[in-house]
Design a protein around this nucleic acid. Structure first.
Lengths: 142, 142
DNA sequence: TATTGTTATACTCTATAACTATA
DNA sequence: TATAGTTATAGAGTATAACAATA
C-alpha cells in the first residue's frame, strides 16, 4: 500500500468518525441528560457497579469532575452510592432502574437511527461496515 | 439481511464511532486549544470566512456561545473579525496564519496516529475501512 | 504514609434574556 | 419590525489544590 493512499484513507476515516459520532450524539431519548452523564451510565452498563475512581480513570477525567457528574446523576435518581463493606474509603456507584431506563431508551433511539441508515446497503457494504467497526474499536483500544 | 444481524452491526458501529472519535480527540498538537475552538477553526478551513451566525447554526450552538468561542480564538490571534461592507450588522470571521497553523498541526498529528494504526492491516481490511468511511460520512450528512 | 472520596475555587462552554446597531 | 451581534447572567463540566476518612 502506497503511503499517499494510506494517508488519504486516514483522512477519510478521521472525518467520518467525527461526523458520525457528532450526528449520533444528536440522537437522544431526550431526558435532558448531558453527554457526560450518559457516558457514566453507559460505563456502568458495560462494566457493572464501579468505584468513583475507577470510572474517572476509565473515562479520563479527574475525580472531582466525576464526583460532580455522579452527584448530578444521583439527584435525578439514575445511580445510587453504596458503601463498600470491605474498604470504608470506597464508594460503589451503581445504576438504578431509572438509570437503566435512560440507557435503554438512548440505545434504542440511536440504534434505530443507524439501522435505518444501514438498511438498504448492499451485502458487501454491510460486511465492510462490520469489519471496519471491529478495526475502529480495536484501534481505539480498551 | 436478518434484522437481528442489522441490529448487531448497528450496535458495533455506534460504539466504534464513539470510541474512535474520542480517542482521536485526545490526539492534538497541544497548543492548549479546546475542542470547541478547534471545531470553529475546522469549520473555517472547510467553508472559508463565515459570519458568526452561520458558524453557530452549522455547529448547532447559540450565537452567544459561539461569540464567546470566537472571542477566545481572537485573543489568541487564530481568527480575526472583518466588518461586512455590504451589511453593517454582519461580522465575518476568518482564519489568520496562526489559525491555519493550528489546524494544520492538529490534522498532521491526528492523521499520523491513524496512519500508524492502519499500517499493517491487510489490503482487504484497508479497503473495508475506506468503504465504511465513505458510508459513515454519507450517513452523517452534509 | 498512601489511597479514596470530597470540598473549595476557578475557567470554559453552554443556554436564555435583554440590549445595540443596522436593515 | 426584523435581523446580527453582543452583553448579562446562570448552569454544567473540567481542572488543581486542599481536606477528611480509612487502610
Amino acid at each position: 500500500m502506497r503511503s499517499a493512499e494510506l494517508s488519504a484513507i486516514a483522512t477519510e476515516l478521521r472525518i467520518a468518525a467525527f461526523r458520525l459520532s457528532r450526528r449520533l450524539r444528536a440522537e437522544r431519548a431526550d431526558d435532558g441528560i448531558t453527554d457526560s452523564q450518559l457516558t457514566v451510565l453507559m460505563h456502568l452498563t458495560a462494566h457493572g457497579p464501579s468505584t468513583l475512581g475507577a470510572i474517572a480513570d476509565h473515562e479520563g477525567v479527574s475525580s472531582p469532575s466525576m464526583n460532580r457528574t455522579v452527584n448530578a446523576l444521583e439527584e435525578r435518581a439514575a445511580v445510587r452510592r453504596i458503601a463498600d463493606p470491605a474498604d470504608g474509603r470506597k464508594v460503589v456507584i451503581e445504576l438504578t432502574e431509572v438509570g437503566k431506563g435512560i440507557v435503554e431508551a438512548t440505545r434504542r433511539v440511536r440504534n434505530a437511527w443507524i439501522e435505518h441508515e444501514l438498511d438498504g446497503l448492499e451485502p458487501a457494504d454491510l460486511l465492510a461496515v462490520r469489519r471496519a467497526a471491529e478495526i475502529m474499536t480495536r484501534m481505539a483500544g480498551r
